[in-house]
């Protein structure tokens, strides 16, 4: 990508035990380029939700599978991509959660995608061959 610089990547097994490591990895990059604490917190949460969704839904908690994470920034944007080779996610099936309904039904999931969309400026899903990618962008 023209003008893009400062790209870092991390490859981790799809296990919730790596959640803190993944959050710290993106937070370090965001802090390094001078984002304020609010933006850093939002990026930590967005990547947590995306990675958790991959663990649970793309890989069905199979911790032997890998997730590749890239974070990069230029003067205008910070972007984070998470790539997996599990089951694909169809964003058209996503609906804004009705909290009261979910509480009544004792359902506890389904809030991650909504949070990601609230926290980031752009969210895209791509499937290339076997690879799913969620790409999240924050405008700087």
């Amino acid at each position: 990508m023209a003008g893009t610089k400062n790209i870092q990547s991390l490859s981790v097994e799809a296990s919730t035990k790596h959640l803190a490591e993944v959050r710290d990895f993106v937070a370090a990059h965001a802090e390094q380029i001078g984002l304020d604490q609010k933006d850093v917190s939002e990026i930590r949460l967005a990547v947590d939700e995306a990675y958790t969704n991959i663990i649970k839904h793309a890989y069905n908690n199979n911790a032997s599978m890998k997730v590749n994470i890239e974070i990069g920034s230029d003067g205008d944007q910070l972007w984070i991509s998470l790539m997996d080779e599990g089951d694909s996610f169809d964003p058209s099936t996503y609906h804004e959660p009705d909290l009261m309904q979910r509480i009544k039904e004792k359902k506890r999931g389904g809030m991650g995608v909504y949070l990601i969309r609230k926290l980031m400026d752009q969210v895209q899903y791509n499937r290339k061959g076997k690879t799913n990618e969620i790409r999240m962008v924050k405008n700087l």
């Binding site: 930590r44 958790t52 999931g109």
Partner: peptide, 12 residues
Amino acid sequence: YIASAGLGVFMA
């Protein structure tokens, strides 16, 4: 820090 998995416990 809290993620939605944490909020889910309160919902359940």
